[in-house]
Simulated assay, not measured.
Amino acid sequence: MRDRACRLALLGMTPALMVIGSVGAAPAQADNKRFNDDVVENVYTIQRKAGCPVEIRVDPRLQLAAEWHTKDVIANRHLDGDTGSDGSTPQDRANAAGYRGTVAQTMTIHPALAISGLELLKSWYYNPHYYAIMSDCRHTDIGVWSENSLDRTVVVAVYGRPSF
């Protein structure tokens, strides 16, 4: 019990609060919607500065593809890139989610409970490959998802060029 109290104190919780909060309650889940929306806004800003004439829009199918990969990376610590545990690529996941078009992906695995929007943007902005993806005016659709665990945060953005 003493070890548990120490761990809870490190997390900013008292044992009494933990007992009160845990009676009949489901485990808390972080709501990253605002963070994900901010990522979209930052990509929009990068595209505007690149001279893109069309506003990027969130596509639920790309968001689903991003969610799948984010959860896969959180669950499978050996993953560190675009390929999923089942061998799927960003294009495979987008197709499976029903998106018709060409996609590209940016992702980050940050070794902490959370990442700031500024940290994320810096890591993508100064990566030439990722910057090229974000500033590509043909990418008019986007889906962003992020997940947190106690020791890492994963953020995936899938960018789409719809085929008409």
Score class of each variant (00 low, 15 high):
Y159F: 15
Y99V: 04
N36E: 15
L17E: 15
T153G: 02
D141I: 06
Y130G: 06
N148C: 09
V158S: 14
V19G: 01
P15V: 02
I109G: 06
R77Q: 14
R34N: 11
L64D: 05
R48L: 14
T70A: 14
I142H: 14
Q29R: 14
A50E: 15
A66Q: 10
H139N: 13
R138G: 01
Y130A: 13
G24A: 14
D141L: 01
W124L: 09
G101V: 02
V103I: 01
I20C: 13
R48I: 10
A104C: 00
Y126D: 00
V23Y: 07
L121T: 06
H110C: 03
W124R: 07
L121N: 12
R93L: 13
G21H: 05
V154H: 01
V39L: 10
D80E: 02
E41F: 01
P53F: 12
E41G: 00
L118F: 02
L120K: 04
V73R: 07
T153W: 02
A9L: 15
V40F: 02
D37C: 14
G21F: 10
R34S: 13
S88D: 15
E41D: 14
K33S: 15
G84Y: 06
A157D: 09
S163F: 04
P90V: 12
R61G: 09
V39M: 05
S149G: 11
R2E: 09
E55T: 15
W145G: 10
L113T: 11
A28D: 00
L79I: 08
S146F: 03
N148I: 11
L17K: 15
N127S: 15
V19Y: 12
A112K: 02
L62C: 07
S149C: 04
D80N: 13
I20E: 11
M13A: 09
A26F: 07
V54F: 09
N148F: 06
A97P: 00
R138D: 11
A157H: 07
V54Y: 09
D141C: 10
R48F: 00
F35Y: 12
S85Y: 12
Y99T: 02
K71Y: 08
L64K: 08
R34E: 11
D31W: 06
A26Y: 10
A65E: 00
S163D: 09
Q47T: 03
G87Y: 03
T108D: 06
S123V: 00
I142T: 15
A66R: 11
A50N: 11
R61I: 06
R2H: 07
T153E: 12
V155Y: 04
D86W: 07
H139A: 03
R4E: 08
A30C: 07
S85P: 06
G117N: 03
A114I: 09
I46R: 14
D38W: 05
L113K: 13
W68L: 13
G98N: 07
H110Q: 12
V154R: 05
P162C: 07
T70P: 03
N36D: 15
A112R: 08
D141G: 05
T108Y: 00
Q63D: 05
A132N: 04
E41S: 01
S135W: 06
H139P: 00
Q63V: 11
Q91N: 01
L79R: 04
G12N: 04
F35P: 12
M107Y: 12
C137M: 03
A26K: 07
L118V: 07
N42E: 08
S163H: 02
I20W: 02
I109Q: 11
